[in-house]
Each structure stands twice: as structure tokens, then as C-alpha cells.
């Protein structure tokens, strides 16, 4: 009994220590969009709805040599029928001056909720994808891209 309690406290301590470390690394350092800004944009769109991880295949390079042209490829799992389809897929960049990247809107006329595009990234950052399904469920995915040369100004 004693052992369990001490293990729990230790875990609790470790968890709070990690949370503290993350908070420090996320401190805003410049004018660029912070993860909090992305969170705010997402809140505007989805309110307090639950975000479920999964269903989105988000394909981006792990390392982008040129931030001006970074290929982004996505596909959301869905049968794409009148009753069950992907309504929208939104993309956000946590380290760009403007957190919005693109918003895709699909209809049951689309055979796949999938597209390939090219985006600009100012620095190494996370790209967040959020998919809205016709039944109201919301899925999300995240991918980090390391950028060697930024894609803003010059």
C-alpha cells in the first residue's frame, strides 16, 4: 500500500515538472503565431467540441530545406456518401505570422477528402489539421516540420 502511494506521488511530481518545462519552451518569442493563437482560431471554429485524434493522414516532409515551398498532402478517412462525409479540413501553422493556412470544404460529390498543395513556413513548427465530419465529429492531426530556410520576407 505504501509503495503504491509513493509511486503515485513520484509520477505526479514528474508530470507537473514536465508540464512546467513545456510551458517554458512555449513562451512567445516573437510576433509569429504561437500555438495559443492556433488554439484561439480553433476555438472560434469549433467552440468547446471534443477533438479526437486520428482519421487524418497528414503528409509533410520532416525536414524542409526551403520554407517557401513545402508540399502538404492529406487524406481523411471517410466513405464520402450523402450520409457520411467530410465537410471541411482546416490547416493551421503554429509558427507563421498568420496561423491560418487553408480551409478545404468538401461535398458528397467529392470522391475523396484529399488534396495536395504547397505551403510557406516561416520557421520550424507544427502544422495542425482539423477535419469536420458531417455527423459533427472533429478529428485532428499534427506534424512537425523542421525548416532550414524560412519562407517569409527575405
Amino acid at each position: 500500500m505504501n509503495v503504491t502511494t509513493s509511486a503515485q506521488t513520484r509520477r505526479g511530481f514528474l508530470a507537473s515538472a514536465t508540464a512546467g518545462a513545456i510551458a517554458v519552451t512555449l513562451a512567445p518569442s516573437s510576433l509569429l503565431a504561437a500555438p495559443e493563437q492556433v488554439a484561439a482560431e480553433m476555438k472560434k471554429l469549433f467552440g468547446d467540441k471534443k477533438l479526437i485524434e486520428g482519421k487524418i493522414k497528414l503528409d509533410l516532409p520532416s525536414i524542409a530545406e526551403n520554407g517557401l515551398v513545402v508540399p502538404l498532402n492529406f487524406e481523411v478517412e471517410s466513405p464520402m456518401t450523402e450520409k457520411d462525409y467530410v465537410k471541411a479540413v482546416h490547416f493551421f501553422a503554429e509558427g507563421n505570422p498568420n496561423p491560418n493556412v487553408a480551409n478545404y470544404f468538401f461535398t458528397p460529390m467529392s470522391p475523396k477528402a484529399s488534396a495536395q498543395l504547397r505551403i510557406r513556413l516561416a520557421q520550424t513548427q507544427n502544422i495542425v489539421a482539423v477535419a469536420e465530419m458531417s455527423n459533427g465529429e472533429i478529428y485532428t492531426a499534427k506534424k512537425e516540420v523542421k525548416v532550414t530556410i524560412g519562407g517569409c520576407g527575405g
Binding site: 517557401l68 515551398v69 513545402v70 501553422a93 507563421n96 505570422p97 498568420n98 491560418n100 493556412v101 487553408a102 480551409n103 478545404y104 470544404f105 468538401f106 461535398t107 460529390m109 467529392s110 470522391p111 475523396k112 484529399s114 488534396a115 495536395q116 498543395l117 504547397r118 505551403i119 510557406r120 513556413l121 519562407g151
Partner: peptide, 27 residues
Amino acid sequence: TFNGREIMKADWHGAISANPYQSFFVR
């Protein structure tokens, strides 16, 4: 659109690269 019916649309922001390339699927 196909025969006047919308298939998909996309809103783009400043983060889309110059000379925008895009590929997608239609039935």
C-alpha cells in the same frame, strides 16, 4: 464544379506558396 454542382472549394491564406499547385480527386 461539375455541370454546375459544387465538388469542393478551398479558402487560401498567405501561407500558400507562389504559383499555387493543387491536386485532388473528382468522380
